[in-house]
């Protein structure tokens, strides 16, 4: 049935989505594109025109390096979220139906607090005279104090913490619909957990994994506030650099060009992945 051509009703139902995308996604993206082709005035705002100068600047090794570094941080964050979050999502989704959603809500409770306040708490844990170093000093005084805060490791910790729910939630939704009987059957046929997981569970939860990875990786590329607070803003990442063009450097057109490049990279990779993937390969 998936694959039917939409009838009149379907088009009607599709209208809100199409309108929303056209008005608030495509139109702003086009505004950005126009902006990126312009020149800046003394306030950094746009003098409309047509110049590719801002795109030429993107090829500067400094900015290429920033692009690559940001992708690296996002990839590491995604991998860690997957390793840490998948077992949790699996465990929650296989819990007794009565407590399943409650456990899920319990995972979400910490995120009711403000991001900034949470990050300050992490700073209190990681700083030189902080909790973690107190523990280290007690266990192994020779090592203390460890310089934990304002390092790439602190940035990754903060990113993983912030994005973990965005991996757990979709994976949970996809494990939850696994047919228990299928796993039981595999066990009854003598397959141990190490066989059942790659043969049965992993393929069936692949759509959930793909969704979770997308929801973590994609926003993490342009993340900025965590990196500033926990990393001490020592290493420029894409999110900060774009933000800076608007809020410090007074160079809107270049900021827009960085953004357009990021969006274009994303669209091309999405369409490319889709073209590579045989139709229906991800269907369970």
């Amino acid at each position: 049935m998936p694959g039917a051509r939409p009838g009149a009703l379907a088009w009607l139902l599709l209208t809100p989505l199409l309108a929303w995308l056209a008005l608030f996604v495509v139109l702003p993206a086009l505004l950005l594109l126009g902006c990126s082709l312009g020149e800046r005035d003394e306030f950094g705002q746009v003098l409309w025109g047509f110049s590719l100068e801002n795109y030429a600047r993107l090829l500067d090794p400094v900015y290429l390096g920033i692009f690559l570094r940001s992708l690296g941080f996002a990839a590491l964050t995604t991998a860690l979220c997957l390793l840490i979050g998948y077992p949790v999502a699996y465990h929650l989704a296989r819990a007794a139906p009565r407590v399943r959603e409650l456990l899920l809500l319990l995972v979400m409770v910490p995120f009711w607090t403000s991001f900034l306040v949470r990050t300050y708490a992490w700073m209190a844990i990681l700083r030189e005279e902080g909790l973690l170093n107190a523990l280290v000093a007690w266990l192994q005084p020779a090592w203390a104090p460890l310089g934990l805060l304002y390092t790439p490791a602190a940035v990754v910790t903060g990113l993983v913490y912030s994005y973990l729910p965005f991996l757990i939630l979709p994976v949970y939704a996809s494990v939850e619909k696994l047919d228990g009987a299928l796993i039981e059957a595999a066990h009854d046929l003598g397959a141990g957990p190490w066989r059942v997981f790659p043969a049965v569970i992993l393929p069936l939860t692949l759509p959930g994994i793909a969704a979770g990875v997308t929801l973590v990786f994609v926003p993490a590329v342009a993340m900025f506030a965590v990196t500033d607070l926990l990393g001490g803003a020592r290493v420029p990442l894409l999110g900060n650099v774009i933000q800076n063009q608007f809020l410090q450097a007074r160079d809107w057109p270049f900021g827009a060009a960085l953004g357009v490049a990021l969006l274009a990279l994303f669209l091309v990779s999405q369409l490319g992945l889709r073209a590579l993937r045989p139709r229906g390969a991800l269907r369970g």
Binding site: L21, V25, V26, A29, T214, L215, A222, L263
Partner: peptide, 21 residues
């Protein structure tokens, strides 16, 4: 396919760009 790719676009759009535009 294009529509599906577009749907995901706001997720990668840096907040400042979405905000200002």
């Amino acid at each position: 396919d294009l529509l599906e790719a577009l749907v995901n676009l706001p997720m990668v759009m840096p907040e400042i760009l979405l905000g200002i535009s």
